[in-house]
């Protein structure tokens, strides 16, 4: 049986990487004594896969992984057992039993939304300053930015990948293309806003929090957990 598990990663655990989160869950699943399925061979491993890798430093309340289980109990029971053994900063929010035709989460991710807010260590509130440059930037026909790939740097128009951007709470909200087809990092949008505002870009002047991970067309996005039902 395939389950999709939604979790948050917050607090100091923002400093552990994607692979470390995977290993953390493998151990938590064992401690919680969930009946996860294993691969065959000399080094059997749990059959679990993560939706979208999360960069170091970012927090999130909308992360997902899929897992194959031999037997399951109920959403409530499995969540409870996991949450009792997970460290502060990682918490499971939902578990759904996937529909038979559901595709692996990593293949269907299409967008993510983010909340960008002030880094308390930083004297100036950069997101507050940048708020005023959202409209001027989005009113342009294109938003050009240098995208760095492994081998080269290319000029790229990121405007089509920004589905929504607006002032939000103490900072900025943005809904961006995400996944294997089109992917836009929130850092690049902030860099573009800094260019617009003519201020120096610095990654540590602001914090990024992912709110949700979505699947589907940009006009009809729905959270990854919509591919299944609680049980």
């Amino acid at each position: 049986m395939k389950l999709r598990i939604k979790y948050e990663k917050t607090g100091v655990l923002r400093f552990i990487g994607h692979l470390d989160v995977m290993r953390l869950f493998q151990k938590a699943i064992r401690r919680a004594k969930l009946d996860v399925a294993y691969s065959k061979g000399f080094s059997p491993h749990q059959i679990i896969s993560f939706a979208a890798p999360m960069p170091l430093g970012m927090t999130s309340e909308g992360e997902y992984f899929d897992g194959e289980f031999n037997t399951v109990t109920s959403t409530e029971d499995m969540m409870d057992r996991l949450n009792r053994t997970l460290p502060d900063g990682i918490k499971v929010h939902d578990i759904v039993l996937l529909n038979d035709n559901a595709k692996p989460s990593m293949a269907i991710v299409s967008a993510s939304d983010y909340y960008i807010y002030k880094n308390e260590e930083c004297e100036t509130d950069i997101p507050e300053v940048l708020k005023n440059y959202i409209e001027p930037m989005m009113n342009k026909t294109s938003v050009e930015i240098i995208k760095k790939t492994k081998s080269k740097e290319v000029m790229s128009d990121i405007k089509p990948l920004i589905y929504e951007i607006k002032p939000y709470k103490e900072g900025i909200y943005m809904l961006l293309a995400s996944g294997s087809k089109d992917n836009l990092k929130p850092e690049l949008v902030i860099e573009a806003l800094c260019n617009e505002a003519d201020i120096e870009y610095n990654r540590y002047d602001y914090m990024i929090h992912r709110i949700e991970t979505y699947m589907g067309e940009s006009k009809a996005l729905k959270p990854l957990s919509c591919d299944g039902k609680q049980f």
């Binding site: 655990l13 400093f15 470390d20 151990k27 170091l56 540590y204």
Partner: peptide, 22 residues
């Protein structure tokens, strides 16, 4: 944490210094 965001994001493997392990 004892170290700032700026430092932790500028060094290799910041998880070496954050504690909070299981």
């Amino acid at each position: 944490l004892a170290l700032s965001e700026r430092i932790l994001m500028n060094i290799e493997k910041p998880a070496r210094y954050i504690g909070n392990e299981v």
